[in-house]
């Protein structure tokens, strides 16, 4: 991988780093306090060390599925985590597959209505999930299987596809961008050799836009993982988000427990992000200029 490390000045690099760090202070501070509070008997909010009294009880309780010290009720947090992951992975998969297909068509094929479709996709975000949810719910009701035993499974499928749909327009645009950056000549030679577009897409282009795919996967995953409104409305089972939301009551929730649950909720995403960063930034090696 090429970098311009040799030619750029170390000093400006340090200066920039410090500048971003300064700008990130509120974020750092706020989220560190959240994490610290999860190990404390009371919320740390005012930077006084007195309020930090170390305990790991919050974590023990959360991992046992309890969001209360005395009392409360044990929930299957493992299952909730699994549900969340299932939705997130499902959304990531559906979004990536669909946008990899449509992104290619919009990047490489000319057809009537292409310009319109591109604009239209962009406009679709004029009514994000919240506004459409009433209609999406009605559709859900109309398509619900009559046998109650299938409802749970159906609700998973529905929430995955419905949530993925919200990301499709943006993902398609991004995918188109990734395809645009691949030189046409690479494909051209294969097509001249008689390969079909579908085959070229699958065998040649997809491997080349791996970083793009990773980015879209990440997008989809985050969207599915952090979704609250769709999950709450359609999914029969709870996820981590709905679980935390339903147990955060300003008057009597023990906030450090919520902090621990919130940190737990953030963990997998952080890991996912860290590992996929490399993939994300990996520029494709290509000798051919576009």
């Amino acid at each position: 991988m090429l970098t311009d490390v040799e030619v750029r000045s170390k000093k400006t690099e340090v200066a920039i780093t410090i500048a971003i760090l300064m700008a990130s202070i509120p974020l750092f501070l706020a989220f560190s306090l959240l994490v610290l509070s999860s190990f404390s008997k009371e919320m740390m909010t005012n930077l006084s060390l007195e309020s930090f009294r170390f305990t790991i009880e919050n974590w023990i309780n959360v991992l046992q599925g309890k969001l209360a010290f005395t009392g409360g009720i044990r929930q299957n947090i493992l299952k909730y985590t699994f549900n969340t992951a299932l939705v997130a992975l499902g959304v990531a998969g559906v979004v990536t597959l669909i946008s990899a297909l449509s992104g290619y068509a919009l990047s490489r094929m000319n057809f009537r209505g292409r310009k319109f479709l591109l604009m239209f996709l962009l406009m679709l975000h004029a009514f994000p999930g919240v506004a459409l949810i009433v209609g999406v719910y009605l559709l859900y009701r109309l398509s619900l299987p009559s046998s109650p035993s299938l409802v749970t499974t159906f609700s998973f499928m529905y929430v995955i596809v419905a949530r993925a749909a919200l990301e499709v327009p943006m993902a398609t645009w991004l995918m188109k961008g990734f395809f645009d950056s691949i030189p046409w000549e690479i494909e051209w030679s294969a097509i001249v050799d008689g390969a079909s577009r579908i085959r070229v897409w699958r065998k040649i282009l997809l491997p080349l836009i791996k970083p793009g795919i990773a980015a879209i996967l990440l997008f989809g995953f985050l969207a599915g993982w952090q979704d609250l409104i769709y999950v709450r409305t359609f999914l029969v089972e709870p996820t981590l988000a709905t679980y935390i939301e339903a147990n955060l009551e300003a008057e009597y929730s023990h906030m450090p427990l919520i902090a621990a649950a919130g940190t737990l909720y953030l963990l997998p995403t952080i890991i996912f992000f860290l590992t996929s960063q490399k993939l994300l930034l990996e520029t494709h090696s290509g000798g051919i200029k576009g």
């Binding site: 409305t233 939301e245 339903a246 009551e249």
Partner: peptide, 23 residues
Amino acid sequence: DTNYVASFQQLFQDYLSKQPIGQ
């Protein structure tokens, strides 16, 4: 089977959206 949460308003909203589908 039991389901117990802290926020009674949240549970009410859940009930509204899940009752019609029998869940």
